[in-house]
Every structure is written in structure tokens, then in C-alpha cells.
Design a protein around this nucleic acid. Sequence first.
RNA 1: GGGCCUAUAGCUCAGUUGGUUAGAGCGCCACGUUUACACCGUGGAUGUCGGGGGUUCGAGUCCCUCUGGGCCCACCA
Length: 899
Amino acid sequence: MAMPEKPVLEGLETKWDARWETSGTYAFRRDEATRETVYSIDTPPPTASGSLHVGHVFSYTHTDIIARFQRMLGKQVFYPMGWDDNGLPTERRVQNYYGVRVDPTLPYDPNFTPPNEGDGKTTKPADQLPISRKNFIELCERLTEEDEQKFEELWRTLGVSVDWKQTYRTISDDSRRTSQLAFLRNLERGEAYQSDAPTLWDVTFRTAVAQAELEDREQPGAYHTLLFTSQDGDLRIDTTRPELLPACVAVVAHPDDERYAHLIGSEVETPGFGVKVPFVAHPLAQPDKGTGVAMICTFGDTTDITWWRELNLPNRSVLGFDGRFVPEAPEAIATDAGLELYAEMAGKTVFSGRKTLVEALQSSGRIVGETRTITHPVKFFEKGDKPLEIVSTRQWYVKNGGREAEIRDRLIELGRTIDWHPDHMRVRYENWVNGLNGDWLISRQRFFGVPIPVWYGLDEDGNPDYDRVILPSPDQLPLDPSSDVPAGFTAEQRGVAGGFVGEVDVMDTWATSSLTPQLVGGWGGRDDELWNLLTPFDLRPQGQDIIRTWLFSTMVRSMFETGKAPWEHAAISGWILDPDRKKMSKSKGNVVTPQSMLEQHGSDGVRYWAASSRLGMDATLDPQNPKMIKIGRRLAMKVLNAAKFVYQMEGEAGDIANPIDIDMIGDLRDVIESATESLQDYDHAKALDTIETFFWTFCDDYLELVKERAYSGDPVGQGSAIRALRSAINVLLRLLAPYIPFATEEVWSWTNDGSIHLAKWPRIHDLPTSAQSRGMLSAVGEALIMIRRAKTDAKVSQKTPVARAVIEGPSETIGLMEQAASDLAAVGRIEDLQFVAANELGVGELEFVQQEEEASSERQTPLQVVPNEATPEQKAAASEEATQVLDLSELRAELDDDN
RNA sequence: GGGCCUAUAGCUCAGUUGGUUAGAGCGCCACGUUUACACCGUGGAUGUCGGGGGUUCGAGUCCCUCUGGGCCCACCA
């Protein structure tokens, strides 16, 4: 391919993405693969309905660098891409985009067309058109497909070397089948079970949520002091949730609290409702909180659940699934006044129920003192807008060690079998495992997701008997129990006494994405050969925020299925912070769209920015001034230009004979060794630093130094230089290829047929000389700097000819410099270049060294070259003197004569 | 309350098992258009290594402690 007159970065993304696609550059060549030669990646599936942000670009670049490195090492890289279309984000987006909502009672309409087709408007639920579940799911599939197209375009622009034939969607038939199969196997082995128990509940979405989906938010609240009645008279109890008083089942104090010891075992009466409840003791009660006595309600918080369980208390729930007080008062409320009070609260929300109760008790004098407002952390569903309530419902769970120490220990053990990058991320995993307080709740009362594939038998009254679980046969999968019929039944028996009813819940989105290795790897009899080829996967790359969800849940599923960890390495990327060191997020309005970033600065530049951060380290990005991206762009540009410069040198490559050429290649050998080692250790940033540092030295010093010789016509010197230059460029391109794949591929194409990304990673025995570096390049670089500085100090062009120059320094350094004397003289335009050993004190104790200043009096163009070790005073003196005697007009004249 | 990470030049960051005078890039200042590169080149200035204490011949590095920043978990009466 022809080398362009003036190489540019613009357009390289489109050009090369298309060629990589048609050439199948990144295709996984299965027939050529064995487990030993495969490098398999368990790529994170981005949420299809979200938008990609710079954080994605950041972490996917990290993964891509590893993928490209491994590919160049000769591995068959299995690098798939998946999309997570399950879950609430999709559901919500579809509701708003099409203006619809699910009504599960409606029949499927095959000719349905959505009322709206546009993004950006949030329609109110009242305006949304009710449609059947199946129609809704079809819309979800349609919209996510459109989203996935956009995502793919972005990844292609970024140069992520994914094999686009290896893609999966978590809503596809295969994925649903895999997910349901894995669930049924968990069920078969007793790892999945259903239980009717208090559950954290989001009243807006009307679904149960799992521990991993919780987050605390600071909320305003208020302490009220209620007066209960004990055998001693008034008993003061502080609470922030007075509205749960009708659900009060006991009051509790710490067993060692002497103030209340005599009351333990007695009964007290609740204010307003007149219910007698036991006074119990429990170590979780904190004497210093409030009055030291707490009321136990079903259920105000998770501590209530613990008390309720451990103290074997009755359940008097008052909040319904909609977060409102249920119509019927708990049976324990028997007084007329109590029933009347409850009737006022029934049907109200938590907020107005509280108001009603507080006003009633204040007027009857059973709330005393001032209410004290506070702010305190309250549990929320991470995607929800209202505080979670706790309701008792039947739900499906998968064991995760939250209740069994033995499972926890195995999970910790498996976590130690994988290499974490960085290593301390393992601690986060272990902290999470050790802090679990319940099994994994996988059922969700939602519509879009993978259905739980079971039915229940109906008794003779037509009520479901949840103990009679009817299971499908594996060949029925994937299935939807609300439309499919279990074996041995007919469709007419659905909902009929003695018949069956389908489970209406779907699985948590993590229940499917915890199976990404299985989804993409052909598990479950779909492709056993592939599964054996890929597992355990080599790499799980992901963000640190989803260690507790994705990483953990994948580990759980793998432990139950295989008894092993699903991967050998986990690479954890950090956050993107804005200039104020805040995590970037949509709600803060400080996000930059990756598309605009890539368009504006080019993919190689953006990749460079991402690559300069180590795994696990947060990176800053100032969208107004993306410094690192600009530097990356400059590097890519320099690669194009330096390579072009080298390739346009005419002349035959000869043997590497010149000492400086040998030494440069020797330095390059060290770079290859160091960069390879870093990359094998998943330290892409360190490798890049090593490569880049050498590359700039190569351009600024070596290339400048030898270019005169490369053009000289001296067959030996020229041949050596050209050979060295071409070898070095060739190696440097390959070293940089994982980082800046577009610029390097462009340059590679000028002199090669195949893709650089399928070229072999450089090895030291490929170099044209096996000699070790003696540090000549850096010594000569020093000399170059001295010469340049002298000219800069003299305020003359670097091109200015010099009659005589003397370089001083320690004899060892001088010796190295001397071997490049002719190159130095050529680049410095020095007629008479001499080297003088300075006294032995040299390095280390410079301030005592008296440097002799050399000056040529000939032709009155003195150039003083002062070794870098000189003190600032000496430098100043030298420069001053030189300036004084310098005849600039004469210099200019000489320069003009040259031209 | 428990845990993890982090603090080095104005900014973003390197700094290996402790070892001469702590580095790079950006920015800044000065100079310069040279057989590729103005999306450019050359050179220069820039530090209480967050504070305090300790170990050591020697500490940015190891230990203790305090402080700031970030994150996770627990608490939620």
C-alpha cells in the first residue's frame, strides 16, 4: 500500500474497521485452537438500554489491550460481546419509548403497533397503553436490538477487537434456555428453594429486591417518643417509624440493661391500639439508643426481621405490596378505639398514615415531647425512588453462603484460586462474602425477564399449592409458564381446580448474567466441545462496582456447576472521575458521550488515555481539556511521521555495524523484555510507559543523530543506520499495536500485506543483533543535549555551524560518546569535535568540580559545551560568555551561504 | 464501628528488593521553521514526597500515629 504524502489520523477508524471485518482479523479460529492456545475472555455485557459512557470506553480498552497482546503472542483469542437486555432499565425505557405498560390479564395481539415511537418523553403511567406481556416483551426485544446496533458501532470505532460473530443477548432463546436450565439444576440439587419470608420490597416497582441491589440514602426523619404502658406505668420508647405501631409485636431491651431487667418477661400495652405485647430481651438492642427500649414491628427494618425470627414472634404486617396500609387491622387489635384508629390509617401511604397516627397520639397525650428531626441512612432499591418496605411474600432463593458458613468458606477459597488485578480487589470480594446476611433472592415480580420455569399444582378449591412444584423437562426450554403447559396437563386445566398455574415471577437479571461463561461458551449440551475449549476462562474483566453482583454471582453459579472458579484472572478497572474528583454519573450531569470524544480526538488518542491508567486505579478526565487524550493523539501522529521518515530513506539496508546502532537495538531488546513482562502481568500502563519512553528517545535523539548518516551515501554507515532504523520501527509498531491499533495498522500496511494485529509479538531473538546495550544511546543523548543547549543558550538555530567544540566528562561516558563522534559532529554541524576526560571526581559530587571551559577562538564562533553535570552558576557563566563574543550577523551570513 | 485504596512539581502520574543529586508528560518561560512531524522541534525553571514519631549507616519506599480524599460493608429503634 502506498505511503501517503502527508499521513493523517482522520478516517483511519472507518477504513480499518471495515478491512478488519472483511478479513476476519479478529475471528476466533476454532479449528486451529486447543485449550492451551486459546485465550478466552468473559466480556461484560453492557446494559442494552443504558447508554455507553466514558467508563465503558475506559475498561473495554483495558481488556482490548490484553486481547490484542495475547493474539499477537499467537493465542486464539475468544473475545465475544454480549448485551444485557434483561431487567428494569429495559422495561422502563420501553414504557417511555413506546408509551405502553404491561397488563398481564390482556391477551396477546399479533397485529399490535405501539402508540408512540420516539425517545425522550417520559409518559405518565396513566397515559400509557396497557398491553399484554407478550407484546411488551416483543417491544423490548425490538428496542434493545436497535440499541445494540449503536453500541456495536461505538465499539468498532474504538477498535475493540471483538469477534463480532461471537455475540449473545441475555434475552435470546439460547440465553433463556441456559438460564432456565441452570436454575432447574440448582433446584434439583437443592441449591434453589422457595420460601415465604419477609422480603425487602420496592413499593414503586412492586417487586422484591436482593441484598446486592440495595443502597443507603440519607433521608430526613424524626424521632417521636411514644408512651407504652408497663406495670410501672408509662414506658417511653423512641421511634422514627411510629406508623408501624399497629404492627408492633413486642418491645425489646438489652439483657444486661439494669433499668429494664425487672420488666423482661412482663407485658406492656401499645398506645392507641391497646395491644398487649411481651417485653423481651435481645443482645442486638442498644442501651444507648433512644430510651434503650425499642419496639419490634413487622417489619420496620432488617433488625426487626432478626428479632422476629430469633424470638419467634407473630407476624402482624400492615403494609401491602403497594406500600399502603392494608384494609384489615391485624387481629391483635381488638379495642374499639384501636380499630377506629387503624381504620383511619387503612389505605393510606406510609407518609400520611404516620401523620394520622402521630396527630391522634399527640392529642391523646401518648406522644410526648418535641419530635426531633434527624437525617439518617435509609435502604433504597438502587433504581428506586421510595424507601424499601419489608413485606412477607413467597420468593425463590439461590443459596450463596448467606446462611451457611460452609458455602461461604468455599466461595472464599475459590476466590483465592484466581489472580486478581490488582490483588487487593480480592479483599472486596471477601468482604462481601463475609458480610452476606441471607441467600440470594432471585425472583422478581416483573414482566420482562427470564421466567422462572415452574408451575404449581392447584388444589380442589383452585388455590395454588406451592409445595407441589411442577417441573418442565429440559427439552421444553426455554418456556414461559404463563403460556406453556406442563407435561401431563392440558391448556384447559390452567387455573382450574385440580389443574395447574404458572409461576408469574421472572428471574433477577443477575440470575442470567451470572451465567455469561455458560451463555457464550455453549454450556448445557449446546456445544460441549466449545465449552471444554474455553473453560475455565482466562479472563474476567469488569468494573469494581459489580464485584458484589456480577463477579460474585458468577462465582456462585460456577461453584455449584463445576466446583471451580470460572476464570483464572480477574481484571478490575477503576472509576472515571471528573476534575473535581467526583465519580462521573448521569445524575451529576458531568458525563461526556464517548462518541463525541472519539470523533473529536480520534480513537487512538482516547485509547492512550485509558491505557495510561493501571487496573483498579481511578482516572480523571476533564472533558474541557482532555490532556492525556491529546498526548495520545500526538503519539499516534508521531508514529505515522517517524515511520514515514524512515521508510522514505532511500538506500540499501546493510549489516548493523555502527556502535550506536548496535546499542540502540540493545536498548530496544530491554524494552521488549520489560514490556512483555509487564503485559503478561496485566500491567498495560507500565508496558506503555516503557515503550513510549523509548519511542520518544528513539525519535528525538537516535533518529536525529543518525539521519545525516542515513542520507550520507557511505555504504557501510548508511546501510547500518537504515537497517537499524527499519528494524526498530518494525518492532516499535508491533509493541504499540495493542494501544494504538489504527495508526500502527496504517503504517504496517505501507510495507506489509497482513494485519499487524496478527503479526507476532516482538521477541528479542528477532532483532538484527544480539548485542547488549552499553548505555551508549543515553550517553550520546547527553552529548546531544549539551550541544543543543549551547546553541539554545547562544540563541542560535540548531542548524548553525560550529567550528570547534569540546565535550568534557568522565572518561567512561566520554568513551561512549566518542564512538558516535561523527554522528554527533554531523547533527551538530561541528567541524572539529573533541572529547576531553574531566577529572575523576565526576558524578555524585559535582558542586566541587571545577569544569574547564573550552572555547574555540577560530573564526570567532565559540561554542562552549558544558557537561550536564555543571552547576547552574557554571552554566550561566558559560552561556554569558558565549553570548558576549558571539557575532550573530556573521553566523546568519554563514547560514545563508550554506543554503 | 469494621475493611480496602489513596496522598510525590501548578496539573495528571511513574518511582522495582530501602541505596548517590526524586523522575516523565502536560502547563509555564526562552529559543528555534532542521532532507518526517506546527496536531512541530530544542532547551530551561519548578518539590517540606500530606503532618508527626520510629527502625536503619541510609527512608518517597519499612513500622506506628494523626489528617485529608475515594470506595465497600455494618448500624438504621
